[in-house]
Amino acid sequence: MPSFALDGQEIVFKPGQTILEASIAAGHYIPHLCWHPKLSPHGSCKLCTVQVNGRLCSACTFPAADGQEVISASEELRQLRLRLTQMLFVEGNHFCPSCEASGQCELQAMGYYLGMTDGHFPHFFPRREIDASHPEVLLDRDRCIFCELCVRASRAEGKNVFELAGRGIHTRLVVNSPSGRLGDSALQAQDLAARVCPVGAIVLKETAFRVPIGRRRYDHKTIAEVSLEQEAPLVRAHWQEANHE
């Protein structure tokens, strides 16, 4: 079986797997925000940046290869990931104490995981639109981090409800309906696209605080622990299925 070294530990992988898939399947967490085991990888958040044979690469899109030397756990990369997380915080409007996603939010959990104590950079305070037109789903663009998980999920579901528009810092999430409003789109609360948001940008209405603070996903576990508990089995199952086909 081919293998690569992740921070000195041998990771056996299946041909076709990315570095991130192979690592997580093997029980080694690499930070990530825009990656989801059920969706095609994207490589935009750059949290999963690792050094492969000395070069910076996105672990979620870079194919694993026999004999690679991969470094993920260095202080240098922790610093990089911390800065990237802070960038995501300051470019949007993230007010954790009043956000219903607090405790369930991957961005917030990532901040804790990386030891983030401040925003470091000046805040951008962008003006972004909130869309409450959908009876079951709220779209709060203030909290969007442009990971495109909802875009990819909705594409996979054949509905194409979400897309990115604009360019650069003016990039924004748009909704596929003539009015541009979520309420006029084909989105339904049970869609993966409505549930995959890693932050509080797309939230289900009437569910806020149903899980009380103190019992939320990241209240007692780190994002690494949750990822290995929940995502690793999905990756393993996916590749087992792929092998049987």
């Binding site: 490589g43 935009s44 750059k46 960038m87 470019e91 951008f124 442009f146 650069g168 810092i169």
Partner: peptide
């Protein structure tokens, strides 16, 4: 101005 906005470091970093 020309950053496409796809990835975090460039979208935010060029502004900073």
């Amino acid at each position: 101005h020309e950053s496409c906005g796809f990835c975090t470091p460039c979208r935010v970093g060029t502004q900073l």
